[in-house]
């Protein structure tokens, strides 16, 4: 593994993936020759409509799908290698953990299998359940989890072994405002310790804040690739989040936009306000968890 320490976090060349259909008589191609590279410590957003192949691509990278054509190198090796898998954190779309287990037991089992040392296990499990806001539900069976709780649990399971490459499939699906805050914190921490991130979502707004680069996937092909700023079309709609200004100042800005030939399509309170409110409220006596 040392020889490939400087290999990119991800290198894909000509990756194609297809599934058998019509009782195996023919195949449907989902990915049509994907070329992609991700440097270590950087983050990539994978955007595209439903059915564009985002989840399939993440599953190929995670080693879940048996790869058919092309070259896949994760952290310099094939994703089939157990040593590489140990360094990947994978949040799948659903909650694919043993549902009859309590959260604490399921997280402990997953962390053990990912090689978290026994001496650190109990502390890390408790810490991550606390981090994702599930400390109160540690003894609850996963089968009884709501969608949002399941997402939080999936995040804890994907990150507890402190992976070098984090793959998140629709991480915001089902998350409430505090859940968004948890996600932001965890992604921030992962980036701070040098992990590479790949985040897939069908909503650009959900992920672009976390990504150095965006890739737009349409019908199994890369349609666009670049920084979030690069991908903003000239003259197209953009979202601008502002804070620290009063209503009058905002009216003046709106007037200036119109004077320059543009238009303000929407003006509403940012969801960040809610996140901040939850953050401040959390931990106060009687506050909901």
């Amino acid at each position: 593994m040392h020889a490939t320490h400087h290999a990119p976090a991800l290198h894909l060349h000509g990756v194609r993936q297809s599934y058998p259909i019509r009782m195996g008589l023919s195949r449907k191609e989902i990915l049509h020759g994907i070329d992609l590279e991700l440097a270590r410590g950087t983050s990539l957003g994978l955007v595209g409509p439903n059915g564009s192949g985002k989840s399939t691509l993440l599953r190929v990278i995670a080693g879940v799908e048996v790869q058919r054509h092309g070259k896949v190198e994760v952290l310099g090796h094939s994703p089939d290698s157990a040593e590489v898998r140990r360094r990947i954190g994978w949040l799948a779309e659903d909650l694919p953990f043993p549902r009859e287990l309590r959260a604490v037991d399921a997280l402990r089992l997953s962390a053990t299998l990912y090689g978290v040392p026994q001496s650190e296990l109990a502390g890390r499990v408790d810490a991550y359940l606390e981090r994702v806001g599930l400390a109160h539900a540690r003894k609850l069976a996963l089968a009884k989890f709501s969608r949002g709780m399941a997402r939080r649990f999936g995040l804890a399971a994907a990150l507890i072994h402190e992976p070098e490459l984090v793959l998140l499939d629709e991480p915001t699906a089902g998350l409430d405002a505090p859940g968004f805050a948890v996600l932001e914190d965890l992604l921030g921490e992962a980036k701070a310790r040098g992990a590479s991130l790949i985040v897939a979502s069908h909503l650009l707004t959900d992920i672009q804040a976390h990504c150095d680069r965006l890739v737009v996937l349409v019908d199994g092909q890369i349609a666009l690739s670049g920084t979030p700023r690069d991908l903003a079309p000239e003259g197209g709609a953009v979202e601008l989040e502002l804070q620290g200004l009063g209503a009058r100042a905002l009216d003046e800005i709106e007037g200036e936009v119109r004077a320059r030939g543009g238009s303000v399509l929407a003006r509403f309170v940012s969801a960040r306000n809610l996140v901040e409110l939850y953050r401040r409220f959390r931990g106060k006596p009687g506050a909901p968890r």
Partner: peptide
Amino acid sequence: ARELDWLAALPVR
């Protein structure tokens, strides 16, 4: 049906 995404990604033979 239920646990493929977890099992197939595990670093366990």
